[in-house]
């Protein structure tokens, strides 16, 4: 197991540096002049240019700049935004909101998706299964932002069950509706994946053997079908965190949630290079670490992996 963890951790390193390097390169070098990227393309005085050059080591070779950026990223020394506030402080404020939103969405899709998927799989061909399958297809086919608008309009405006916009407080209750919207599409995927996985495992030889041993149906399902069926679902949840981050940009926009996604989106529109690179790098780091965690969970669920 230790060797597996060690190997897996080693794999994270090149992935993190590779992807942040790509983002850094895209934002700072592909955008023509880095000064433009830093200033949002507005005309600025030579003094500011000199100051920015010094701050971002623009006189240094590209890889040195990138190295300094990574060092700054890990020491939360991210410079200041156009508005003059330290970027680290802005992210520090927005990040917990998005984390809360993502955790809620992840919990919704995992809990409801797995439960519904298990029931659908166990009752294959029955009414519940059919209904849930069709409903999940419809949910998958509707883009998150359309779902967001519709739910905001129906639940928030017409029915008045939830605040249509979240605002600066962004506590758990406020975030429920956005979290549902964010988690809904993945919920459908989790449901379908769980169902397929359950169906596959139900016909496994070891399930028949377990039945032949005299175990009750309940125990066969809980102990022998469920755990084995969760293995692919867990992998999906890890990979899906990336989808949630993308979705967060949209959802936070619709519900006006003061989170990272919203901040990133504004920074992108404003051409605020340092902010974009910082946020994206942090999100990539979170994503990579979350997948690392999922892999460890996977190894725990499936002992064969540990020795692979």
């Amino acid at each position: 197991m230790l060797r597996f963890i060690f190997r897996r951790v080693l794999q994270v390193i090149p992935v993190f540096f590779g992807s942040t390097l790509i983002v850094y390169y895209l934002v700072f070098s592909m955008s023509g002049s880095p000064i433009d990227a830093l200033s949002g393309g507005k005309p600025i005085s030579p003094a500011v240019v000199a100051q920015l050059t010094a701050q971002y080591h623009l006189d240094q070779p590209f890889f040195i700049q990138y190295g300094i950026f990574i060092k700054n990223l890990f020491t939360f020394n991210l410079g200041t935004s156009f508005s003059g506030r330290p970027i680290a402080a802005i992210i520090g404020q927005a990040f917990p909101v998005t984390a809360r939103l993502a955790i809620m969405a992840l919990a919704i899709e995992a809990i409801f998706g797995v439960t519904a998927g298990v029931f659908a799989g166990l009752r294959k061909g029955k009414l519940f299964d059919g209904t849930v399958l069709i409903a999940s297809l419809v949910v998958i086919a509707i883009p998150t932002f359309v779902l967001g608008f519709v739910l905001q309009f129906v639940v928030g405006v017409k029915l008045g069950w939830a605040k249509p916009t979240v605002g600066s407080a962004a506590d758990w209750a406020d975030l429920t509706l956005p979290a549902v919207v964010l988690g809904l599409v993945s919920f459908a995927y989790v449901l379908r994946l769980t169902r397929t996985s359950i169906l596959e495992n139900m016909n496994a030889d070891y399930v028949r053997t377990a039945t032949a041993k005299g175990l009750s149906r309940r125990r066969v399902v809980m102990v022998h079908i469920l755990r084995n069926s969760l293995i692919p679902v867990v992998t999906f949840l890890g990979a899906d965190l990336g989808g949630l981050m993308g979705g967060a940009i949209v959802t936070e926009g619709i519900f006006n949630v003061p989170g990272v996604g919203n901040t990133l989106y504004r920074a992108v529109l404003a051409g605020e290079g340092p902010m974009v690179v910082s946020i994206v790098s942090i999100l990539v780091l979170v994503f990579v670490l979350a997948n690392l965690l999922v892999d460890l969970l996977y190894a725990w669920l499936d002992p064969r992996i540990r020795y692979a």
């Binding site: 592909m30 955008s31 529109l269 974009v276 994206v280 990579v288």
Partner: peptide, 16 residues
């Protein structure tokens, strides 16, 4: 490791 929408935002907002 670059989520689709996240990465697309970065790329598509490049001036070029």
């Amino acid at each position: 490791a670059l989520p689709l929408i996240l990465g697309a935002i970065v790329i598509n907002s490049l001036p070029a």
